[in-house]
Simulated scan of single mutants.
Amino acid sequence: MTHESTRRTVLLATGATGAAVFVAACGGGGDGSSSGESPAGTKSAARGGGRLAATDEIPVGGGKVFADRKVVVTQPEAGEFKAFSAICTHQRCLVSSVSDGMIDCPCHGSRFRVSDGSVVNGPATQPLPAERITVEGDSIRLA
């Protein structure tokens, strides 16, 4: 009879010290997705503080998804720019589009407001987390 190891079996076999290491290795993302920082505290190459767009690339009442940076930038009112994580809070799909004042997730139909990232349509129940940007002149940068 073959015995497949489950996570529970591995945890029981390794004891408390092994379990702590195992949990730490599996925990909280570690990819800097919410802060743009690597574990060492430096900006990651994927998220960095580089230029995202020119202000005229972001339509008023709409926005633009930057899939490679996992961020969506919106302009709810003329001259007001916001940024949110482009990762849907439902099942971590990448949002795909921004139109009619809404950020849309293609996976299950969740919709979020461009003004504050709040949920308009589920199944998501949590808003998109805000991201920090800076606007200097006509340039939008991820902070």
Rank of each mutant, 00 (worst) to 15 (best):
G137N: 05
C88L: 07
A20V: 14
F112H: 03
I103K: 08
S110N: 02
S44R: 07
G32I: 01
S85T: 12
E80S: 15
A124K: 03
V60C: 00
A13H: 10
S96D: 15
E57W: 05
V65L: 05
E4T: 15
L94I: 09
E37K: 12
I58D: 02
G41L: 01
A20T: 13
R69K: 10
V135G: 03
C105P: 12
P127T: 09
A19D: 08
V21T: 11
D104K: 13
A78D: 14
D104L: 13
D56G: 13
S44Y: 03
A20S: 14
Q75S: 03
E77F: 07
A78E: 13
T55E: 05
L52P: 08
R92D: 14
D138I: 04
S139C: 11
R141T: 14
D68N: 04
R7Q: 13
D31M: 10
S38D: 13
L128A: 02
I87Y: 00
N121M: 14
P106I: 05
L11W: 01
S96K: 12
K82M: 11
L52K: 04
R113W: 02
V60H: 00
P39C: 04
C26D: 11
G109P: 10
G122C: 01
E131T: 11
T14K: 07
A143W: 08
Q91P: 10
Q75M: 05
S118T: 12
G117K: 02
G61E: 02
V72W: 02
G62P: 06
S38M: 14
G122Q: 00
T134M: 02
T134I: 09
A86W: 02
R113F: 08
E57R: 09
K82N: 11
S139G: 10
T9C: 11
T42S: 13
F22M: 08
P106C: 00
E77M: 08
K43M: 12
E136G: 12
K43L: 15
E37Y: 13
I58N: 05
R69F: 00
L142K: 04
R141E: 10
G117I: 07
S33F: 04
P59D: 06
S5G: 13
G101Q: 03
M102V: 14
A16F: 12
G49A: 07
T42W: 11
V10W: 08
G63M: 09
T89G: 01
I87S: 06
G36I: 06
A130T: 15
C26T: 11
Q75C: 06
V135E: 07
P127A: 07
S33Q: 11
G49N: 07
T17R: 11
D104I: 14
